Simulated scan of single mutants.
Amino acid sequence: MNDSQGSLSAGTRPDHAPADHPRIPAPKLGVLIANLGTPDHYDYWSMRRYLGEFLSDKRVIDIPNWKWQPLLQLIILTKRPFTSGKNYKSIWNHDKGESPLMTITKAQTEALAQRMEGMFGDQVMVDFCMRYGNPSTRSVVDRMVKAGCEKILFFPLYPQYAGATTATANDEFFRALMKQKRQPAARTVPAYFDSPHYIEALAQSVERAYDAAPERPELLIASYHGMPRRYLMEGDPYHCQCQKTTRLLRERLGWGADSIHTTFQSVFGREEWLRPYTVEHVAELAKSGVKRIAVVAPAFSADCIETLEEIEGEIREAFEHAGGESFTYIPCLNDDPLHMDVLAHLAAENLSGWTG
């Protein structure tokens, strides 16, 4: 450290600096975990703001603005906030006044911070942001820089990479860095769809669910968030990474080739998406005589509207209505200790060379 910087402690001036020099916090490393996002509430205007931000993202909907925005603003955002708000209300954490995703992400942040402190002492600051809604990526990056983070590891909580998830989260992080006078050094954590630690945590969650089931499910459905099939053809690796996650999970469990089916949920619009669609596939299974299935959602690091309402609601109903008798939803890894060990391992691995 040269004379112009001097020895710094929290909120001090550099050695040899004039009296009017701004105080500078002690240097830190930052780990910033990021999830998709959540509305602030399930009322109409909160839902409209959230959906407007989400559905205006070019990584999510890449239709030209002149064609998409009139449809979005005049039709979709007039009607959809009511139905989406009703769905959010059905899963809302009313005690804490927030969505389950927010509750879980806070718990994940706290657990990761404890593990980082155990590894690195007070050297690392851990925080979280949302790509859409609050806390915004920009606000948290600003807070971390002001707290002294001179290097930030950005960690999108998506095991499989997709342009509409990982890439747009990274985009927003880089845009936030553009606003900083003193820009920190930055790294991003890559997809971890084939990490042995992640696969192990996923496998153990399946084993626990199967051990607790009154009767063993006949099939396991690995339901991933969908995307337009066109994105795959344009080079997005998401579909391939989902397929590999399923294969590695099956191999770790020691199951046969047809014991796990890969499907895709959350289809939106008229364009063809990745198939098979989960809601259709489970109904077809029930009609073919399958009575007991379990569903796991390996693309989600935390339970949210797509798991708690869509899988537990729409997809469960499709299976049961078609004749299925036993539907087991296996929760996301959330803040399970083994999952948090996985995230801590990945964070520490990507902090290599930055930590003392």
Rank of each mutant, 00 (worst) to 15 (best):
T105Q: 09
L77R: 07
S195M: 08
E215H: 13
P64Y: 04
K151G: 12
E306P: 07
V124N: 08
F82L: 09
R138V: 07
R252F: 06
A209D: 11
I104F: 03
L72D: 01
S288V: 10
N2D: 09
V140Q: 14
F268Q: 10
Y224Q: 08
I75Y: 14
E110W: 05
G30M: 10
P64S: 04
N65R: 15
Y161R: 08
T166W: 12
R182S: 11
F82P: 06
L253A: 09
L274M: 12
R131N: 12
R80K: 06
I293P: 13
I199H: 03
N35Q: 09
E306M: 02
F193N: 14
H345F: 11
A147T: 15
A34R: 02
H16P: 01
R250P: 03
H21R: 12
A26Y: 03
C240I: 11
A185P: 07
V31A: 06
R208F: 06
L343D: 11
H16V: 04
T328W: 12
L285T: 02
A111W: 14
H94W: 09
Q265Y: 05
S90G: 11
A348L: 06
E53S: 13
D15M: 01
E207T: 03
W354R: 00
L248A: 10
L153N: 06
S301I: 13
K181L: 04
N134K: 11
P27N: 09
R23Y: 08
I61R: 05
V60M: 00
F173K: 04
E200N: 14
S195R: 11
C129A: 15
H345Y: 09
P217N: 10
